[in-house]
């Protein structure tokens, strides 16, 4: 009771709470900003890396961006467990429902546009470029939201087999996809740490897969904030898992985990590309290399990206033929 009265006697100033001085006159104090802790996103939770390690990316001016989690092999393993656990639920959802959730993601991103623009500016983008990137990212989500319940119609077929069978082929998600997202810096103006991230995640989950994504090493801020968007978008936990850290450390784990079905790599590093293809032989992962894509252009979006992490399943069933072929049975 006593405390409450005291509190209510405090006055609010522009910069923060005023503190009564001995003389009774208020002294203005600058508010201490709350710094954001950039955590990783696994199974719908925001843990710190189990390794306790961090790194500090800086912008071009040398400003420290944040203490970012330096994810470990074990974080990746946990993320794969979460992603695997989410496969049946997510792939089992109605395509229309997945479409709604991707649209919801776009809505939430739109609502937090300012934050993303701000983060991009911190990471060296001009305001105009940052705005463009965020807008494109929102539109890309909407683009793929629309594809969720349409690409199957485009890439399915009813096959006119010669025997008395009904035969059809449909795409199905391959399962868990590990993604090393575009780094967002090379080559300048073609990638974008947010746009690249959204452009590789959206087609994977639109098709019903789940994924573990390694964000841009140098520009990780938007990735973590994007995880917060996901977390508030009805997207089930585990469908998208986002790690921060170094591709140089993690890339090989991303491709040799036996419970991962496909790997996407977006950089030009030919040593890594070779390593990925070699290691993919362990369990014959599907490999997509998106090192030549300009995510800002039309070629940065198409249903063919969805198909890169789809399998084609063909189903046969006999067709009874009672009246035909002279048979009366």
């Amino acid at each position: 009771m006593e405390k409450a009265i005291k509190k209510s006697s405090l006055k609010v100033s522009e910069n923060g709470l005023e503190k009564p001085t001995a003389a009774g006159k208020p002294v203005s104090t600058k508010r201490l900003e709350v710094m954001k802790t950039y955590k990783i996103y696994i199974g719908g939770q925001f843990p710190r890396t189990e390794s306790g390690r961090y790194y500090i990316p800086t912008n071009a001016a040398g400003k420290k961006l944040a203490n970012v989690c330096l994810s470990s092999r074990k974080d990746f393993r946990d993320a794969v467990v979460a992603a695997r656990g989410a496969v049946s639920g997510w792939s089992g959802r109605a395509a229309f429902n997945r479409s709604q959730i991707l649209y919801r993601m776009a809505e939430m991103l739109e609502g937090r546009k300012a934050q993303f623009i701000d983060e991009l500016i911190q990471q060296d983008a001009t305001k105009a470029k940052a705005e463009k990137e965020v807008n494109l990212s929102i539109d890309r989500l909407i683009y793929y939201a629309g594809w969720c319940d349409k690409f199957q119609q485009l890439f399915s077929s009813v096959n006119p087999v010669a025997s008395s069978h009904f035969n059809f082929s449909v795409p199905e998600p391959t399962g868990v996809v590990s993604i090393i997202a575009p780094q967002g810096d090379l080559p300048a103006g073609r990638q974008g740490s947010l746009l690249g991230l959204v452009s590789v995640i959206a087609p994977v989950i639109a098709g019903g897969n789940t994924c573990v994504v390694l964000a841009s090493e140098t520009k990780p801020l938007c990735a973590v904030t994007f995880a917060e968007v996901l977390n508030s978008s009805d997207l089930p936990g585990g469908v998208v898992n986002i790690l921060t850290g170094k591709p140089s450390e993690l890339a090989s784990w991303f491709v040799d985990h036996m419970d991962v079905n496909a790997t996407i790599y977006c950089e030009k590093d030919s040593t890594v590309q070779k390593m990925i293809r070699e290691k993919s032989a362990l369990n014959l992962k599907r490999i997509s290399l998106y090192d030549k894509i300009n995510w800002y252009s039309e070629e940065g979006q198409s249903p063919y990206f969805i198909m890169d992490t789809q399998e084609i399943k063909t189903t046969w069933h006999p067709v009874e033929n009672i009246a035909g072929a002279g048979g009366g049975y």
Partner: peptide, 9 residues
């Protein structure tokens, strides 16, 4: 069952 029109793999 196999058929030329039916994808296999």
């Amino acid at each position: 069952k196999f058929d030329p029109t039916s994808p296999f793999g």
